[in-house]
Design a binder for these strands. Structure first.
Lengths: 244, 244
DNA sequence: TTGACTCTCCTAAGATCTTGGGATGGCGGA
DNA sequence: TCCGCCATCCCAAGATCTTAGGAGAGTCAA
């Protein structure tokens, strides 16, 4: 037990100081050090894309080995990546080799083989989901087989959750480009996508149900959608709704 | 740092052994000890009701002071509880006094006053969302003002997530692997995503409207979705629906 | 100042969805 | 053969959404 105490202290030390990290660079450096101490060689923090939308804009931190991210994106590997697909189906952290091959097994194996060539042999993935159901993940990678016990993985879990929270605060102020929906409309639509009724959304936002109904009406008109379900799909397709 | 090490070791010790806890009683005892060591006096682990539904059936562990839970339920306090309402709107842990008063402020303050009489003066709440999108929470309470630093809260956060995962497994409500949609169901859902009503879909597929409604019903149940809009989003997330 | 836009709130009817309960026939595996 | 799953169909009440009108208050820029 004694020899393990080092990284635990490190993680808790990070937890204690992360509020003082004022920019993404600082967070990245801090995380990199801890990730190495936990016995991993690289990592990525990212939201998960839907509808064949690109992965790039959802990435919060990319510390994968040089070239692999570009390869991954250009080949649209997310669609066949068993780890990526498994994150969408679970909310518990898992070791990479526990992720089932869900879709095209040949392509998946080819992808995992390529990943290994880039030094991604094994890993640990922490799914992170927000209140609206959009999922993100903090994935730790290693260039050989991982030999980590429950404590190391728990420390990684805690690190992932804490770091992600801080990153969202730091990055969340990105000024959006020209958009067709107003901020309030987008907010209403996010909750609709999460399955909330107009009444539920009104309670969540602290406004009247009538106002939510009006917002949804405007959304349908702007997006030329037949109903709210269609509006959500259209919004996802044109990037008005980010699964993040 | 030295004086803080006790509870950290305790939490990590729990993380290491929780897989061996084979019944709810054992988990409750283990959690109770750690919660006390972290400086809290009581706690509750529960799912969150929507739409005036009762709270009772969603409770996994209730270690609140005697009588308060009964009072809370009989008065339907969840509807005015700022902590309960805030959990629905956020996914990050928060201290009770950070939760905004969203609705009837008078009733909310009355409720919080009553809670204080029962020994719930302050607390820390960890929202938890599962892969299915249903939200739960692990709420730690204390009978006086909390004096907890980031490390204690981080430990509580980790404890909440780990314990909740184990409870879900033990209670058997662990999200069983999502059943896949049948080809017909997928076909119906594709048209729903395109904004078609049940009647329109029935005409497109050459079947009755009743059949389409039945398919949508089955889809919602399989995907644990609150409504068809939610079902479409879930299906997209888990890859049941391909982008058209 | 005016106009455009946003956010808020309201009523009300009719369409649609949701939920509960049924039923039949076919198909394939144990 | 029996059982489970699939696809199809039906009814009905109640909840929710959709559509069509309206209105007031605030911001911002021309």
């Amino acid at each position: 037990m004694a020899p393990n105490r080092g990284y635990i202290e490190t993680v808790f030390g990070f937890v204690e100081t992360w509020e003082t990290l004022s920019d993404v660079e600082a967070v990245m450096k801090a995380i990199s050090l801890i990730v190495a101490e936990l016995g991993f060689s690289s990592f990525i923090v990212t939201g998960l894309p839907l509808l064949n939308r690109p992965l790039e804009p959802l990435v919060l931190l990319n510390c994968w080995p040089d070239g692999w991210f570009e390869r991954y994106c250009s080949q649209n590997y997310f669609e066949v990546d068993p780890i990526g697909q498994n994150v969408l189906a679970t909310s518990s952290p898992f070791l990479w080799d526990r992720a089932p091959y869900r879709r095209d097994k040949t392509l998946s194996k080819q992808m995992m083989g390529e990943a290994a060539e880039f030094g991604l042999h094994d890993g640990f993935c922490v799914p992170i989901c927000s209140a609206t159901g959009w999922q993100s993940a903090f994935s730790f990678a290693h260039d050989r087989k991982i030999d980590a016990g429950p404590k190391e993985l728990a420390a990684a879990h805690l690190l992932a959750l804490t770091a992600y929270g801080r990153l969202r605060v730091l990055i969340g102020e990105a000024p959006p480009a020209r958009r067709r929906l107003t901020p309030r409309e987008r907010e209403v639509l996010v909750w609709a996508a999460a399955g909330k009724s107009a009444w539920e959304t009104s309670a969540l936002l602290g406004i009247s149900e009538a106002t939510v109904i009006t917002h949804l009406d405007h959304i349908r008109r702007k997006l030329n959608a037949a109903n709210t379900t269609h509006a959500v799909v259209v919004a996802l397709r044109i990037g008005e709704l980010q699964p993040c």
